[in-house]
Design a protein around this nucleic acid. Structure first.
Lengths: 115, 115
DNA sequence: CTCGACTATCACCAAAAGGTTATATTGCTG
DNA sequence: CAGCAATATAACCTTTTGGTGATAGTCGAG
């Protein structure tokens, strides 16, 4: 859900805009260059993903960034950081899970070990 | 492109699997529980996003993780980190880049200075 | 060279995504 | 209350997505 929410460029743009503080819908419409219902649709998705919340403000509704769910993305990304921090020319020492590779000589040897 | 690539759960799974080292297609097929063409399709997308590379190995093809593009995600995420590191009740000091944005609404006197 | 194993591409399909216009809803304002 | 402004929802359409089985290409084994 969260991944799908951030997957769309327009929605990412919204999140970026909200970083500067709460914004009413009409302003987002302006910035995105979409129809108002189109923006509302995106906002609903962001809302359902927990990435934004709404606060009524007169006849408008202020959308407010809720960055917490983004931590999940960061957490997923984290283990990969170790890989791009390596020099990428030596992938074979990562865990030495590369060893099984060598195994390929064996006709049908499967190695679904735990690693 | 990169976001779309990582947007799919099966493809994220592939990236996770490849973290342990290069893998032939048939093994990924096994792990994902999809049809072989289905997996090949995902792999193509990952390839085109630069997230994996292929190395021929006999009649098999070993897929290899290429984590560099993931940095882009991390970079996008970075500015948000400041927000979730804050107590979320005081968004008003973040940058006040909000000011310029607000100017445009001059005609309709709004007082969104409160936040 | 032929066969079988492995993988990629093709053709196709159903479902989901993203957009639009039209309409409903809500809250000020006079 | 009437009317307008701001937003949400509905209905609809087109394109993209993710999956499938069928088929083609490639490589090693014999």
């Amino acid at each position: 859900m969260i991944w799908a929410a951030v997957g769309d460029p327009h929605r990412r743009r919204v999140l970026e805009l909200l970083r500067a503080g709460p914004r009413p819908v009409n302003e987002l419409v302006e910035q995105l260059g979409l129809s108002q219902p189109g923006v509302s649709k995106h906002l609903r998705i962001l809302r359902e993903a927990g990435l934004v919340t709404v606060r009524p403000d007169g006849q408008r509704r202020l959308y407010l960034l809720e960055p917490a769910p983004l931590r999940e993305l960061a957490r997923w990304l984290e283990p990969f950081r170790a890989h791009w921090d390596d020099r990428p020319d030596a992938p074979e020492h990562h865990l030495d899970t590369a060893a099984p590779l060598r195994e390929r000589l064996a006709p049908r040897s499967r190695q679904e070990d735990t690693w």
